[in-house]
Design a protein around this nucleic acid. Structure first.
Lengths: 161, 161
DNA sequence: TGGGGTATCATGGGTTTTCATGGGTGTCAA
DNA sequence: TTGACACCCATGAAAACCCATGATACCCCA
């Protein structure tokens, strides 16, 4: 397995600990940790592996040094990031500021996004996904990205989940 | 070359297990698993090989990082996906949410789609296929602009190429 | 060409291992 | 001293694994 997939809802205990899904742990590998920072577009928490974080820093530094854009991005991403270490039982402690950003209390959802993943308050993510589905339906471009070749006309058998 | 063909109906047992057709297993190869997610447009379950999923993730990540478009697509595809591992006996466990989406209870139909395949509730798929056939026939009639008594019975879809 | 034998496959059930989760103890720093 | 944090262990539930069996398709040989 090479990518993060699925939506895993796990409990957040009294100490702020939460189990990282076993699938995800396997992908994260040996330096058992990852980077997390609040998304600047929604209530989720962006989670990146070390290597993705590295390439992201390359990208950001490719921008004009000292430019406003560079400064903003660097601040949004790096300054507000945490390194979350996974303990011997496969859990991490969610820092309070991240929990507050996401509105997480008793439960959290680990959401696979391919090369990255996110952490959400479960109901919040349900809502986000519903919206994403509606947007995709309205947006032909999104549908064109589907792996299926020439399928039947999509409007024959509509249904959601 | 990996081409999934045919329609194979297998039982789903009490534990939610179902045998993956031997043909399909042979095509899936050594990392004996595949990715499955509910279709956006019908009641079937879309099934993709790891390599197709990988290239899909490349495509999605080629979009602007943290853009709405990227985030939406990644959520629809990856967040609702499951990695289904094939056990030593050639079976997978269908997660409850996928079974519910497809309306699967006692039986499931593995439907070859070329480079991908789908899983359906058998009767549902029959119906879908009938409709697809009627649409195809209607399109041809429209193109030819001539009436036709009893249409030809296209009996493909049941054999190899 | 037909019959018997064999390999493959789908399916059912039992058992072991993994995983998520709760709680306790020790350590370090403010 | 107190609070935060990292480590250790225990446990119930769920998933993965192992084995057995009936049926079917395939092959070989007479």
């Amino acid at each position: 397995m090479t990518i993060f997939v699925g939506t895993h809802v796990n409990k957040v205990d009294r100490k702020g600990r939460v189990s990282v899904p076993a699938d995800f742990r396997a992908l994260l590998g040996s330096p058992a940790n990852f980077f997390a920072f609040p998304s600047f577009v929604h209530h989720g928490i962006e989670c990146l592996t070390g290597s993705i974080m590295d390439s992201l820093s390359e990208t950001v530094h490719g921008l004009d040094l000292f430019s406003d854009e560079q400064d903003n991005l660097a601040d949004l991403i790096f300054a507000s990031s945490y390194t979350l270490g996974i303990d011997g039982d496969g859990r991490v402690v969610l820092p309070a500021s991240l929990r507050i950003h996401a509105g997480i209390e008793g439960q959290s959802a680990f959401v696979g996004k391919g090369k990255t993943f996110q952490i959400w308050e479960p109901l919040d993510h349900d809502q986000f996904q519903t919206q994403a589905r509606e947007r995709a339906r309205a947006d032909r471009l999104a549908l064109r990205q589907r792996p299926q070749g020439s399928g039947p006309t999509p409007d024959a058998m509509e249904n959601g989940t």
